[in-house]
Amino acid sequence: MTAESPRRPCPCGSGRRYKACHGGSDPADLIVSRPFAGLAAETELIALREFVPSATAPLTLRAAAASADDAAAPDGAGTLPTPSVTLATVLPGAAAALTRSDGSVLLGLQVQTHSGDLARDLATALEWALAAEPSSVLAVVGRATLGPRWADLVVDEPLQVTVHEDFGWWLESDPEPGSEVAASLERANGAVMPSAKIADLPGAYWVDTGDKAHLRWVRPEDEQTLMAALARVAAAGELDLGEGTRYVGSFRAHGCLVPVWDLDRDAHPSEWTEPVRAFAARLEVALASDEPLTDAQRRARDGILGRQFTLR
């Protein structure tokens, strides 16, 4: 990493000066409330971390990360090829990372963290994987302190997410029928909530929780701006997504708001593409407005603020 001026804002996005943040003596003690701030993949990373059960996305490594992998080659072995790295929602045993027999890497998002900076924990797991032997597993990340963060190792670009119906992608080959591996996979598959991307909009997912179907949509805007825009849409009577839907509220995740709508559970996920795109267009118009809120819009905003909850 390049040296940072101690008086400049910390590149982690915390708002603190570098000296008082990641330039301090022990960055593991710091809480970074928005670990992926400013990244093109921020909303997708949050969705995959928080509520999408089974999904993967290929990652492109920065040159520095690839060079570090080359340096791990045994003397006289020449340059190692850069391994294929795939980001995953959750891995077997909630592992932080694992390497396959061919040296490819799976990096887990839904893991126990040991510092206040998820972006640093992920980078620590990725560095371990790039230096690990094939068929290795990193159960948990240790106390990540000094070292790179996510954006130092991974190219900043949108994620190409594939949502899976089960966890069959965990295994390199089919398990033996009746084996413990087969039983573990069956148990994991039984817990998967059906999910799907909606309208190719970053961070927007249809999720069937069993009792209801929802749209959960991670938004990148700051909270005040987004709430004002939602209030404008609500005051115009256009906050729902059509017949049989209703706006439920929102929850916070890694510095971003996630609005949630109840949907008709009998409708196929693809049926929500056009309604969600239409709402996205209405929201963009509202976000672009810099007019003060009217009395009706302020009342709508107060109602929306009162409908925030915690995802469990």
Rank of each mutant, 00 (worst) to 15 (best):
Y18C: 11
Y18G: 12
Y18T: 09
Y18V: 08
Y18I: 11
K19E: 12
K19W: 00
K19Q: 13
A20N: 14
A20V: 12
A20H: 15
A20F: 08
A20K: 15
A20W: 05
C21T: 05
C21K: 04
C21I: 06
C21H: 04
C21N: 06
H22I: 05
H22G: 11
G23S: 11
G23K: 05
G23I: 06
G23L: 07
G23F: 03
G23E: 03
G23T: 03
G23R: 05
G24R: 01
G24F: 00
G24M: 05
S25T: 11
S25R: 13
D26I: 05
D26E: 14
D26H: 13
D26W: 03
D26R: 15
D26C: 09
P27V: 02
P27M: 02
P27L: 07
P27R: 00
P27E: 04
A28L: 10
A28Q: 11
D29P: 00
D29R: 14
D29E: 14
D29I: 00
D29Y: 00
D29G: 15
L30W: 00
L30C: 09
L30H: 05
I31T: 14
I31R: 14
V32K: 00
S33G: 13
S33H: 12
R34C: 14
R34V: 03
R34W: 01
R34L: 08
P35D: 07
P35R: 01
F36W: 14
F36H: 07
F36Q: 04
F36L: 09
F36N: 02
F36E: 02
A37V: 07
A37E: 07
A37T: 06
A37M: 05
A37P: 00
A37F: 03
G38A: 13
G38I: 09
G38T: 11
G38Q: 10
L39S: 12
L39W: 00
A40D: 10
A40I: 02
A41H: 03
A41P: 06
A41W: 01
A41Y: 01
A41N: 07
A41G: 10
A41K: 01
A41F: 02
A41E: 03
E42G: 11
E42T: 09
E42C: 11
E42H: 08
E42I: 08
T43R: 09
E44S: 14
E44L: 02
E44I: 03
E44P: 04
L45H: 09
L45S: 11
L45D: 09
L45I: 08
I46M: 04
I46W: 01
I46C: 10
A47E: 05
A47W: 02
A47F: 08
A47D: 08
L48H: 09
L48M: 15
L48Q: 10
R49H: 15
R49P: 01
R49Y: 12
E50R: 14
E50K: 13
E50T: 15
F51C: 12
F51Y: 15
V52W: 01
V52G: 10
V52I: 13
V52E: 04
P53H: 06
P53D: 14
P53R: 02
P53N: 08
P53V: 10
S54E: 01
S54W: 02
S54I: 01
S54L: 03
A55L: 07
A55S: 10
A55F: 05
